[in-house]
């Protein structure tokens, strides 16, 4: 799935890269720059690869090669509600792959992907540190312990309710 980079994200990208233009920067700065971009934008858009390659005077392929080597970099925007399913040892033993599959099926996307409306993304993570609650899923910062396939639907209902409440509190947000 292809995502257009939003104008806002492009501005952020250019602001980050502007700090480096006209300065001599080493190739060793590549990862720190990518990390900054991901931190501010949430992912590495295509334009970032091009821009960073210009800033460092190395080829786009080289930037892309390094970026794809590390798991920490993602190339699709995270959803507004990023869903993380823990597949650490404890969760794995407790059938986390079935939980992951349920999220994937519900949203019609695969792990590592984002829904077209950018509302949800699903990814697998290693241990989140609360093995006693295995299997565990996270939506944003919210932890859902003792997950079961039957609880997946409930989580989406909760999110819907939360959205409606938010909507009521800021009635003008649509304008």
């Amino acid at each position: 799935m292809e995502f257009e980079t939003t104008d806002q994200d492009l501005i952020t990208l250019y602001t980050i890269c502007d700090q480096f233009t006209d300065k001599i920067i080493e190739r060793g700065q590549l990862i720190p720059i990518l990390q900054q971009i991901q931190e501010k934008i949430g992912y590495i858009p295509k334009e970032a690869i091009v821009k960073v390659s210009e800033v460092l005077s190395i080829s786009q392929a080289a930037v892309y090669g390094v970026a794809t080597f590390y798991n920490q970099f993602r190339f699709v925007p995270p959803g507004k509600y990023p869903i993380k399913v823990c597949l650490g040892t404890a969760c794995h033993v407790k059938g986390a792959d079935i939980i992951l599959e349920n999220f994937e099926r519900k949203l019609g996307i695969k792990e590592g992907e984002t829904t077209q409306n950018r509302e949800f993304s699903v990814e697998r993570v290693a241990c989140v540190g609360c093995c006693a609650l295995a299997p565990v899923a996270l939506v944003g910062e919210q932890v859902y312990g003792h997950m079961a396939p039957s609880k997946v639907e409930g989580i989406f209902t909760q999110i819907e309710v939360k959205k409606q409440i938010e909507h009521k509190q800021t009635p003008n947000s649509e304008n």
């Binding site: 690869i49 190395i58 392929a61 794809t68 080597f69």
Partner: peptide, 20 residues
């Protein structure tokens, strides 16, 4: 001109041109 580079890693490793 370093048009090519390795991308990804492990079994997924490929040569990439980043869609130039």
């Amino acid at each position: 001109y370093s048009v090519f580079s390795f991308a990804q890693r492990g079994f997924e490793t490929t040569i990439t041109t980043f869609g130039n």
